[in-house]
Simulated assay, not measured.
Amino acid sequence: MVMQDGVPPLVGCMIGPWDHSFRALRATGECVIAVPTVDLATKVVEIGNCSGADIDKFEAFGLTPVSAKKVNPPLVAECLANFECRVKDDSLVDRYNMFVMEVVEAWVDPERKERRVIHHRGDGTFIIDGRVLDLKKKMVKWPAYVQ
């Protein structure tokens, strides 16, 4: 979730302590948040049903690792966007499993044809992005944010 839309951008991410990703993030303080599109939905669920402690998910699911610019974990070439992150605040981890991370580099694939992202609703159901609602003219209080 977006926690600060500014400089630096901050995102919150909840990860359970039973996940390999939790232990890796605690150990390294770095991660990449990859943003998949709807064409990867089935693969996303399959990836979530196994552990990186047991298998190489890039190899097992035919994904392409790409070297990140500012963190050690790789980007996922097949994703629409990738956010290189470093843990900024871990004070909420013990109580809520919530990491506050600073986005140190962001990537978007301008060539990617599929741009609809998926949002997990729980229990294996997802919502797919679709129609754009443009309300830029209503953004009178924060005109600096309107491009």
Rank of each mutant, 00 (worst) to 15 (best):
T28H: 03
D90P: 09
V32I: 12
V93Y: 01
P110I: 05
C85K: 04
A68E: 05
V104G: 10
L92D: 13
K138F: 10
V100A: 03
D89M: 09
S91P: 08
A144Q: 14
A60E: 14
M1V: 04
H119E: 09
A68R: 05
E78W: 02
E46K: 15
V38M: 03
I15E: 02
D134K: 04
P110A: 01
H120C: 13
V117E: 08
V11D: 00
G62H: 07
R121Q: 15
D39F: 00
D129G: 15
G12W: 06
F22T: 10
G124K: 11
F58M: 08
L80N: 06
G48F: 00
C13E: 00
V32H: 04
C85S: 07
P8L: 07
P8V: 08
P143H: 03
M1T: 08
N72D: 10
P8E: 10
F58Q: 13
V11T: 04
T125P: 00
T64S: 05
I15A: 01
L92P: 06
R86H: 07
M139G: 13
M1D: 06
H20Y: 14
F58E: 09
A27K: 11
K88H: 15
M101A: 13
C13I: 15
T37G: 06
M3I: 05
E78P: 09
V140N: 03
E59K: 15
K43Y: 03
Q4W: 02
R121I: 01
R112P: 04
K43M: 14
T64I: 11
A144N: 04
A144S: 09
Y145H: 08
L10N: 11
G48I: 05
V38H: 04
W107G: 10
G62P: 11
M14Q: 14
D129L: 12
F61D: 07
K138H: 10
E30A: 02
W18M: 12
Q4G: 10
R131C: 03
